[in-house]
Simulated scan of single mutants.
Amino acid sequence: MVDPHRGVLYPAKLPNFTRVDPPADVAALVNWFWIPEWDIAPGRSSRQDLVAYPSSNLVVEPDLVGISGPTTRISHRDLSGTGWAVGAMLRPAAVAALAEDPTTVIDDYRPFDAPDLHAAVSAAMSDGEDPRRHWRAVKAFSEWLGQRIPAPTEEALLANAMVDLLISDPTMLRLDQAAATLAASPRTLQRLARRYVGLPPSAIIRRRRLQEAAQALREDPTSDLSTLAADLGYADHAHLANDFRTVLAFTPSSYRGAAHNPDEN
């Protein structure tokens, strides 16, 4: 199981956050549902920084339904006031059914026309004291997905298997390795990645390694950067540092210091 918090750069700053596994009937469509709830003091805000999974998300908020595509850089959201969201981290099989071309929503978050989904999830979340509100919201969301999205094809399931492999197996460092494991050609995996994810397989592998590097730096402030780079399959420390600068706009050393002093960020 992939750690749902792996892409959160400063976990100590998370609002009240609930992760819910999908019901069995939509497990081929959703990795997990995520439900943040927050109550920020007037005049203050809380920034949530992410190096997100290479996935799209369908999100219900009090005033809209939105779809976000995979990201190529650090992303953030500033929370203020009181609020909630119910998001579904989509598997590739669902992405293809909801976004005609997922490359068009890369690094974007845009409204998604689903008034019935909004009404059902909002009704479930309307009573903030109801201990079953998360279960009700996920049930409503899952029912909507099951009605909206047809049963995944064999191709869609292969796309699921490809992404599962690339984001969870640290030994997968090259496309040809994944192709051999899945008994598919590299060209097929490249086509599936474009159609069902929006990013090439190489970008999915880089994102996993960057998340793992950030997690390791959070968990062990004394870790040697050269050793960490080698453990994660980078050619050397310089390549790890370049990935950090390209995606996160800071170095591994500066992130390590910030991760252990989150109140200063």
Rank of each mutant, 00 (worst) to 15 (best):
W32M: 10
R6M: 14
S126A: 15
S122V: 04
V26T: 15
M125Y: 12
F17I: 10
D107M: 03
V26Y: 12
A124H: 14
P42W: 03
P23E: 12
R91G: 08
S75W: 02
G81T: 03
A41G: 05
W38L: 08
I35A: 05
L58P: 02
A119L: 12
A123G: 13
S126R: 11
G7F: 15
A97E: 15
K13F: 06
T82F: 03
D116L: 10
Y10R: 09
V30D: 08
P54Y: 03
P111W: 04
M1H: 13
R44G: 04
V51W: 07
F112P: 03
L29F: 15
S56Y: 03
L14G: 14
A88R: 06
G66L: 00
V65E: 01
G128H: 14
A124G: 13
P111E: 08
P54F: 02
S55F: 03
D116T: 15
H118R: 14
R47N: 04
P62G: 00
F33C: 11
F112D: 04
V2P: 15
A88C: 07
P115A: 05
P92A: 06
G83A: 03
P62C: 00
V51Q: 02
D39E: 13
Q48F: 02
S75C: 02
A119S: 12
Y109E: 07
I67H: 01
G7Y: 15
S46M: 10
V20F: 09
A93C: 12
W34V: 14
E37P: 02
